[in-house]
Structure formats: structure tokens, C-alpha cells
Design a protein around this nucleic acid. Structure first.
Length: 633
RNA sequence: GCCGGCUUAGCUCAGAGGUAGAGCAACGGUUUUGUAAACCGUGGGUCGAGGGUUCGAAUCCCUCAGCCGGCUCCA
């Protein structure tokens, strides 16, 4: 019941924040660059209807409605015009007008335009309507281009020294699927050419550590068309990392009193009817699975799909669902027998694989998939235990994040939004839940921001967000407080006074999902995994065939200590073998030749630091043992 | 799901209407190597799938799939 895969769309996040923040100088410049882009577009296509053109992280965009489909092929022409506009150093003039004057201009098609036009500026008109009564209406003009705009802008277009159009996409007007689709042209701009170049270079470098690229190069995972989109296959090397991560977390769980359970991948439709996920979230689930006999009967009756769907929804037809979450099954484990307050809290944990039918356009590498494994657990406790349990969960997420060096992780306390309809439960339990979670977050010492509207529908949550290589923000770990499911499943325990009491559920996943977490880890380490996670930890490289026997001895010793070692017997030069090991990002290379064999030593080279020189074999072994045992990063 | 782009050998990519190429990898030899690429040879492709235009299609058109970038959604 929690959203370990929830992606907080950067754009939306930015927009919401921008309203309350003043623009910094770079944003101001980029905002002006958006106006220059709009001017250039209008010079080419005067009929274009403009919507909005704000600065965003990394650049700016302008949304336009235009019959001509703008493609990157059009960029050179647009950029050429922009360069000219910049060279002309056109001043930005601020003009304050009355609401009526602005309206008249918009009706004459003069807003977001170079001249009056036959068609009114429909989006500008709409934006004008949405400006609060007490706010002044301002226009900004450069050359013949007049736009409805709150500003601010740089003095003139000449300030834009380095700019580039980057990509084009579509966007719904005001982000609403029901509104028309506009073309969104993205670009970036800087105060100097040099900064632009540095930025583009940095973008290029970021692409090098993209987990989809490294995942393929290092043979960690595979997304195969024949298996299905969004259904990653873990290759042997990736599976090792996954297993090591699970082993690490399992140790932490056992230390904290969790009980491991295991539940199936499918469950009865009725289970998910009780939890509320079917049919309410039907669109984001794989359709139900029917029993063969029942399916045959429907075939014979020639039942239409619509009829079948209808009967499934009404609960007249039984079936199974690929589980979209693990909680209902953990709940059934809790409900399997009467529970006493004495045994609470009960913490049920599972690396549980769930399936969600994400829209095809949303799938992305390992970060957004249709089948993924959550490091899930549900803590069933008394209200009086909530605070301590929350604190323990937050501490665990902190341990995980710190142990793996994800120091950029940002925590967010998601609170109930203004639209109370979207949330279940009374004001009182929400206030209590929010207060408890806020208190726990503060006590845990994490830095967090509060975000109304980001709660789960059943309760507030703390999410840990991390950016990927190309700057997209993803939710990893999460801790969520839930008063809803215990009610829906009528969960009880026997309290101290013998009365039945309602437990509280805490949902939590420190990694979030194994898939997304590994994606972030690949990018974070740029494929250079720490020793304890590395699929191949040591490669022994004999100088020539003559030293293979010594190499075998070294390999055997390390294998005895459970290290993942391979002996490179390839018929290649030393340089070539080292190059291959480097590209495969094997953390330790041991070069063995005559010197090493005679002295029972090894020459140590690390993928990250290069040649470290010779070392006693035993000394190297103890170094490895320490590094691995402490899970150093 | 929507808009745009892309899809050629295991990988990275050339080929733009005249019948498929390179480098790396693989395989077979030669070489026996001291810290990021030894040398020679061999095999490998319904050019994402299907349909159309054409004497002729990797190349042009249509449909579909997958991927990429956004948008929307996201328990």
C-alpha cells in the first residue's frame, strides 16, 4: 500500500516552489531567454499561440501551440534568429497596464505576439483571468514582442551570452490531460559561453554513468523485449549485487526484531477488494487472472469483455490479481490468529515482488518498471508504540542511505493536502498521525522539508528522494503511517484490559525497491561498486602461462575466504588483461609473475587508484577481509 | 496513454533508391607478455515486425512493437 516507486515529477515540484520563490539571477536570465525564444518562433511562425515560458532547473522552455511540428531540425533556424535578437541587445521594457487594457490587447491577439493578429491570444487571455484581483498586470516588451509576464528580466537581450535549444516535447496546457497539447521547446542559457560549454560537458559526463548504459556494459541487468517492457532480468553479476544488498539489509532487520515472511505473487481478487485496490486502482494493475474452468464457461456463453469486466468489478466473478503491493498478505498473516498487546509490535518483513501496470511512456530502465521487489515490511503496533517504531524506521533508512554514501538524499514529510476528499480518515487521526511523524522525523535528526499534498491517501509519510544521473528525482526509501487498512481489514488485538483494540500499521521500505535502488547505486558509484557489492571482487592476472600455477594458488586461497575471484588465463598481454579488468571495473587486480611467486607476494592494482605495488599475499588477504566485513565504500 | 525522435552483426556505429560495411567482441592459430589494446586468419546480419510504392527498398510511404526525451499519471 505504499508508493516506493512514486516519482515526484521535477517539473511539477519546480513549478510549485517557483511561485513562492524569487528568481535568482540565472533564472532571470533564462526567463529572458524564453522570451527571446518566443520572439524567434513568432518571427518564423507569426500565428503561434504562446502559453507559458518559465525558467526550470537546467534551463527554460516555452509552450506554444502551432500546426507546424517543431523538430530538432528547426533548431538551427530558431537559434540563428535568437542569436540576432541577442546581438541587437533589445531592451526589456516593463509596462504596467490595467486588467481591461491587457484584455483588449489579448483579444486583438497582441499578447505573446509581434503584432496584432486576427486570432485572440487565447492562452494569455486564460492566464490573465487566473491572476488574482489585487495583483498588478504587467507586460514585458522587447522589440515588437509583447508578452503578459510578471517578470523580472535582465536589462536587455545582450546579457544572454551562451544558449542552446536542447529538446522539444509536448505538454498539456496547465498540466491538465483534458487541456490541449502544446509543443514545449526546451533550451538552456548562461551569462557566458564558457558556462554553457561546461554545462554541456557535464551533461555528457552524466550520460556516461547512466545506469542503463552501465547496466548493459557491466552485464548487470537486461530488459528484453520478448520478456516484456518494464520487466527487468537480473543477470548473474547484477544478481550478486542484489543478493549482497539483501544480505546487508536482512542483518539490519534481524537486529531490529523483524520477522521474515514470504508470500505469493498472486492473491485472490477478494483480498484486494477489501484493501480497496480493486477495482479502484484497476488501471494501474495487470488485469485479473481467471480459473481455467470459469474462463471456459465464459467462452461457451460468449460473454463479452465488457460484461466480464463488469461482473469482475461487481464481485460476481472470482479471480486472482498479480499483487500490486504486499500489505494485504502481511495483514492476513497478522490476522491469522488472535493477537495480544504483549506480542506487539509485530514486524513482518519480506523482499516482496509486486506488479503494476505503469503506462508505457513512463517506463525507464530500472527506475520505473512494471515488476519490482520492495524491501517491504509492515509493523503492527499499538498507538502508544507508533512514535518509537517510526523513529526506528527512520533510523534504519538513515543507516542504509549513509552506509551506501547516498549523501544527496533529501527527506520529505508528505502531509495531507487541501483537497480533503482525496484522503481517508478523520481530521483528528490525521492531526495525530502528522504530529507523530513530524516529531519522529525531528527527533531522528534528518533534514526534511514538509510538503502538503504529498501524503499517501491513508496517511502521512516520510520519503527519501535521490536524483538520477540526468537529474530526475526518484523516491527511494519511505516510511508511512496507516490508520486506514487496519480498519478496512477489521484488525484487532486484545488490549491490557481485555478489550479489542485497533492496531496501527507502519509501512516502510528503506531501499524502496531493489530495482530503483540499484539503478541509483550504479549511477552513484559510476559502476565502481565497493568491494562487498562488486560482482567480481578480485582478478588474478598471471604475467604468462608459467605463473598460472601460482595464480591458481592465490585464487584458491581467496576463494577459501569466500571472495569472488577469477583467474585470467587469456592469451593476452598484461596491458590488455589490465585494460579489460579496468573496463569491467573489477576493484582489485593481482598481477603475479616471477618476483611475486618467489616471495609469496602479489602486485596489487585497484580499478580506481591504479598500481599500489607489491604486498605479502597474507597481508592482502587481511586487507580484503576487513574491507569486506566492514562493508566499506 | 499523448507529442517528438530513434531501431543496421553480441557491443559501438557508418551506409540516404542499385542488392550490406568498420572497429571491438567471438572462434582458430602464432606469440609468453611487468600495470589501460601483440600479430595473422575465420565465421557472423530476413537492416525491429508487417504491408505498400518501385524494374529494384536498410534507404520513400503506412500500420504495429520496442527504446529515448518530455507531458500526464503514479497505491
Amino acid at each position: 500500500m505504499f508508493s516506493s516507486q512514486d516519482c515526484l515529477c521535477t517539473g511539477v515540484y519546480q513549478k510549485r516552489r517557483k511561485k513562492v520563490q524569487k528568481m535568482n539571477p540565472l533564472e532571470k536570465l533564462r526567463h529572458s531567454a524564453a522570451h527571446v525564444l518566443a520572439t524567434a518562433i513568432l518571427e518564423i511562425w507569426p500565428e503561434a499561440q504562446l502559453a507559458a515560458g518559465p525558467p526550470v532547473e537546467g534551463g527554460f522552455y516555452y509552450d506554444v501551440e502551432l500546426d507546424h511540428r517543431i523538430s530538432p531540425e528547426d533548431f538551427p533556424l530558431i537559434e540563428e534568429k535568437m542569436r540576432r535578437i541577442i546581438a541587437e541587445r533589445q531592451p526589456f521594457k516593463r509596462i504596467e497596464v490595467s486588467r481591461e487594457e491587457a484584455r483588449e490587447l489579448a483579444l486583438k491577439g497582441r499578447l505573446g505576439a509581434l503584432s496584432e493578429r486576427a486570432t485572440p491570444s487565447r492562452y494569455k487571455l486564460d492566464i490573465l483571468e487566473s491572476i488574482p484581483e489585487n495583483e498588478p498586470i504587467t507586460l514585458y516588451q522587447n522589440d515588437h514582442f509583447i508578452d503578459l509576464c510578471a517578470g523580472p528580466h535582465v536589462e536587455d537581450t545582450g546579457w544572454i551570452k551562451g544558449f542552446k535549444l536542447t529538446h522539444v516535447s509536448s505538454a498539456y496546457y496547465k498540466g491538465d490531460e483534458k487541456n490541449p497539447q502544446l509543443q514545449r521547446i526546451y533550451g538552456t542559457a548562461f551569462y557566458s559561453e564558457k558556462e554553457l560549454e561546461a554545462y554541456l560537458k557535464q551533461l555528457e559526463a552524466a550520460k556516461q554513468r547512466d545506469h542503463r548504459k552501465l547496466g548493459k556494459e557491466l552485464e548487470l541487468f537486461l530488459i528484453d523485449e520478448e520478456v516484456g517492457p518494464g520487466l527487468p532480468l537480473w543477470l548473474p553479476k547484477g544478481a550478486i549485487i542484489r543478493a549482497e544488498l539483501q544480505a546487508f539489509l536482512t542483518e539490519e532487520l534481524q537486529r531490529r526484531g523483524y520477522l521474515l515472511v514470504h508470500t505469493p505473487h498472486i492473491g485472490s481478487l477478494d483480498l484486494f477488494r477489501i484493501s480497496g485496490h480493486y477495482p479502484y486502482y484497476r488501471d494501474s494493475q495487470f488485469p485479473p487472472i481467471l480459473e481455467p474452468a470459469e474462463l471456459k464457461e465464459f467462452e461457451q456463453k460468449q460473454m463479452s469483455c465488457a460484461e466480464l469486466a463488469n461482473r469482475l468489478e461487481k464481485g460476481e466473478v472470482s479471480g486472482y490479481l498479480l499483487k500490486p503491493m504486499n500489505c494485504p498478505m502481511h495483514i492476513r498473516i497478522f490476522a491469522a490468529k488472535p493477537r495480544s498487546y504483549r506480542e506487539l509490535p509485530i514486524r513482518l518483513a519480506e523482499f516482496g515482488t509486486v506488479y503494476r501496470f505503469e503506462k508505457s511512456g513512463e517506463l525507464s530502465g530500472l527506475t520505473r518498471v512494471r515488476g519490482f521487489t520492495q524491501d517491504d515490511a509492515h509493523i503492527f503496533c499499538m498507538e502508544s508504540q507508533v512514535e518509537a517504531e517510526l523513529l526506528s524506521c527512520l533510523e534504519l533508512v538513515k543507516v542504509v542511505v549513509e552506509k551506501l554514501g547516498l549523501t544527496d538524499a533529501k527527506a520529505r514529510l508528505g502531509l495531507r493536502g487541501e483537497d480533503k476528499e482525496k484522503y481517508v480518515g478523520g481530521a483528528e487521526s490525521w492531526q495525530k498521525a502528522e504530529r507523530d511523524l513530524r516529531k519522529a522525523a525531528q527527533e531522528s535528526g534528518i533534514n526534511f522539508v514538509e510538503e502538503p499534498g504529498e501524503a499517501a491517501f491513508y496517511g502521512p509519510k516520510v520519503d527519501f528522494l535521490v536524483k538520477d544521473a540526468i537529474g530526475r528525482l526518484w523516491q527511494l526509501g519511505t516510511v508511512q503511517l496507516d490508520y486506514n487498512l487496519p480498519l478496512r481489514f477489521s484488525l484487532t488485538y486484545v488490549g491490557e484490559d481485555g478489550n479489542k483494540e485497533r492496531p496501527v500499521i507502519i509501512h516502510r521500505a528503506p531501499f524502496g525497491s531493489m530495482e530503483r535502488f540499484l539503478a541509483i547505486l550504479i549511477e552513484h558509484f559510476e559502476g565502481h561498486f565497493p568491494l562487498w557489492l562488486a560482482p567480481e571482487q578480485v582478478r588474478v592476472i598471471p604475467l604468462s602461462d608459467a605463473f598460472v600455477p601460482y595464480g591458481q594458488k592465490v585464487t584458491a586461497l581467496l576463494q577459501q575466504h569466500k571472495f569472488r575471484v577469477t583467474l585470467d588465463r587469456k592469451n593476452e598481454t598484461l596491458g590488455a588483461k589490465i585494460r579489460i579488468a579496468q573496463l569491467e571495473k573489477v576493484p582489485y587486480m593481482l598481477i603475479v609473475g616471477k618476483k611475486e611467486e618467489q616471495m609469496s607476494r602479489v602486485s596489487v592494482r585497484t580499478a580506481r587508484k591504479g598500481n599500489l605495488g607489491e604486498m605479502e599475499l597474507e597481508a592482502f588477504l587481511s586487507l580484503l577481509l576487513t574491507e569486506c566485513k566492514e562493508r566499506r565504500i
